[in-house]
Simulated assay, not measured.
Amino acid sequence: MSSKIKLGILGGGGDSLIGVLHRVASSMYDRYEITGGVFNADLQESINFAEEIGIPTNRIYKDLDSLIAEEAKLPEEERMQVVSILTPNFLHFPMAKQLLENGFNVICEKPMTTTYEEAKILDETLKKSQTIFAVTYTYTGYPMVRQMREMIHKGEIGKVQKVDVQYYQGWINPIIHDSEKRANTWRLDPEKSGISCCVGDIGTHAFDMIEYVTGMEVKEILADLNFLYKDNVMDIDGTVLLRFSEFVKGVLRSSQIATGEENNFTVKIYGEKAGLKWEQENPNYLYLLQDGEPMKVLKPGHSYNSELSLNGTKLPPGHPEGIFDSMGNIYKGVAKAIKKEDYHPAEFPTLKDGKRGMNFIEKAIESHQKGNVWVKIDQ
């Protein structure tokens, strides 16, 4: 019998980009085999999709209840061991909770839930289930992001004194100016997306990235959000000031109306000795900035990089790696945890990261609604 981890998938059928990303990532290190799931709310659509991508249809289920009930009937060694949740936001919490309560390991898309309260409930559920839970803050899987993290943690740039993170997209610009389109987009529907669009979607990526690379926790935030139209209740742009301590501060800027931008995620961390800069659209370059020195460019695959960075590098120097590789590194880390192998704690984001992300989203909305005031992030 195959020693690969048996993976089930919820959502991600049809032409879903996130579905392709997760399927490719799971196959990257030959650690998983997709055994079934619920790709679509319509059973026949799920079956058709499974046939299209070459998965046996005997473990394609009509819904999550059926999946759990039928998998429980199988011998333990044949059951799905981990389930990836790729559905719209409002389904993340109920699905994740039900899976944890039934002993499954979980890989969940972000935002992990639609409320901070739900995140706290999941945290308690996970403690009881003692399984593995990963949240796919995808960009933490890039080798040069991991190199940035290790350099900061080892003190190579000195004490961090300034953080500047920008995540700009323009995809919602053609939608927001059309009243009919903005009324029929699930990202702008609080019942499906939660209380935030931009901060909840990409702002939470930026927030997690800041804490991931610096090892510091944000203590307080002040948010100023933009909605553009009075009938749109969901933020589509925002600037958030950050306080880590009295003398360490930063700014997080996220926008989905940055006209013409594609996926401009830029992370800049400045320490007392040096600065580091990374850009998602050019992910193989990590820029090292030092007073009185020419800018240095670090690239993946070289022996000067950290073990954590090299562990996530699949190709020789000079061969570009991208978002599929980044997600693949997260799946690889989860596989190690499920198999009880040694792994670095930075190899995949955990439920704690998802929980802090939800706290950040709610506090950003609260700060804005109270008139752009400082509010504390739970520690």
Rank of each mutant, 00 (worst) to 15 (best):
P143Q: 02
G215Q: 05
A206K: 06
N173T: 14
E217W: 01
L100V: 07
R253G: 05
K6Q: 12
T313M: 04
L222E: 12
Y142R: 01
V233E: 13
Q369I: 11
W374V: 03
E101K: 14
E262S: 10
I269H: 00
I330H: 00
E45L: 14
N105K: 06
G250F: 02
V297A: 13
R182E: 07
V83D: 03
E191L: 10
L308M: 05
H22Q: 05
G301W: 03
N359R: 08
L351V: 08
I175C: 09
V199F: 02
S16W: 09
N305F: 00
G275H: 03
N264I: 04
F247Y: 13
Y285G: 08
K296V: 04
P94F: 10
H22G: 02
R356L: 10
A41P: 14
V82R: 00
V240D: 05
M80H: 06
G36S: 14
V38T: 11
D231W: 08
P316Q: 02
E272G: 02
R146I: 07
Y304R: 11
F90N: 14
T140H: 05
E78C: 04
Q256F: 06
I172T: 14
L43K: 15
I338T: 08
I85G: 05
I176A: 11
Q290E: 10
G13D: 00
E321P: 01
K268W: 00
D65V: 08
D123L: 10
A50M: 05
L7M: 00
K120H: 08
F93Q: 07
Q256K: 03
Q130R: 14
G354Y: 00
L252I: 02
H344T: 11
G238N: 03
M209V: 04
V251M: 07
Q44S: 15
T185W: 11
E150Q: 13
K296M: 12
K249F: 03
T35E: 12
I9W: 03
I53N: 04
K352R: 09
M358R: 11
P317K: 02
T313D: 01
F247G: 07
Q44I: 09
L17G: 07
K219N: 10
Q166P: 01
K332Y: 07
I47F: 06
E180W: 14
E101V: 03
I176L: 15
M327T: 02
D42T: 14
H205E: 08
G271P: 11
L289T: 02
K62T: 14
I176C: 15
V233K: 15
N359Y: 09
K4I: 11
C108W: 02
A335Y: 02
L188Y: 11
L99E: 10
A364Y: 03
N184P: 08
F49T: 11
G357S: 12
